[in-house]
Amino acid sequence: MVGKVILLAMRVALAWTFLHAGVLKIWDFAHARPATPDFVVAIQQYRILPSPDLAVLLAVYLPWVEIFAALGLLLRPVRLGAATIISALMTIFIIALSSAWMRGLRIECGCFGRDGAPTDYLALLLRDLCLLAAVVILLVRDWHARQPKDRMMFGDSGRFTLP
């Protein structure tokens, strides 16, 4: 019971985090204006993409991926897919941050819109590793949750039988 409550809390917290991150990359509430231009600049600061056009495409699409993946975490039919997307995103973010850190770039993360503060790489990487660990736990849990149905249908013999 306690385990289920903890998992539910993790799921809701992760969903809220990514929903929040996605929305803030689309709209700058503090200044009542689109936040996409700031996100384009944030992506370009990492100096990973070969073309400015790719940065614009990513800045437009990525926030909506975050939003739909966040909502998907809360919907049973697409939980696995949502957790997969978020795991992939966190892995990419960790690699991008690590790359920027190794190259000595002084940038803004761009993770939750523009905050004007230079990136504290260590804190961000630790945070992202924790988020990745949490979503992997959910992924494994959701994957295992599908197993009992299979055992019911296939039985101990491994042959398909009607329930």
Partner: peptide
Amino acid sequence: RTFARQAALLLALAL
């Protein structure tokens, strides 16, 4: 396939 199908659906919905 389940992972990929669900992820593809979400990615398409976001488009």
